[in-house]
């Protein structure tokens, strides 16, 4: 390893004396191990919140409800207020110039703009 890398101590040592169990003991090298952690969704599912009283606060029920305010519709490209929406690309746009632009955009870019507000076509 290079001298400057060693000097900066950026690489975590594999053996640390203050630990009771070392990393290499816990996760031995060369042993195939499946995913040993759960996604947040799985964690929440395993919590079984439905078995507890509804007025007890938990991770799920403290989430904010959907907004009651009128939805703000802004132009996907410029951020201006967007009175129109293009039926072909489903992008919102503010005026004719932006419309011209979105009609000339390649499909990849259209999808990336849509993905910004979670409206892109997702192929599974």
């Amino acid at each position: 390893m290079e001298q400057e890398v060693i000097e900066s101590e950026m690489v975590l040592p594999t053996h640390l004396r203050f630990k009771k169990i070392q990393m290499y003991e816990k996760y031995p090298k060369g042993q195939a191990r499946g995913r040993h952690w759960k996604h947040l969704k799985q964690i929440i599912q395993a919590e079984n919140y439905q078995n507890y009283p509804a007025d007890e606060p938990n991770y799920v029920n403290i989430e904010s409800p959907p907004s009651m305010h009128p939805r703000k519709q802004i132009c996907d490209i410029t951020g201006y207020e967007a009175p129109y929406s293009d039926p072909r690309t489903h992008l919102r746009y503010a005026n004719t110039e932006v419309f011209k632009l979105i009609r000339s955009l390649p499909n990849e870019y259209v999808q990336r703009y849509l993905a910004l507000r979670n409206a892109a076509v997702v192929l599974k």
């Binding site: 907004s67 305010h69 951020g79």
Partner: peptide, 29 residues
């Protein structure tokens, strides 16, 4: 426009497709 368009999502999360209340509405909730 990006200078204030991006932080605006804290008040209107629906701009990035998250259908939840923004900061001011959260205080009300």
């Amino acid at each position: 426009v990006e200078r204030f368009r991006c932080p605006e999502i804290l008040f209107h999360p629906n701009l990035i497709g998250i259908e939840q209340a923004g900061l001011d509405e959260m205080a009300g909730v």
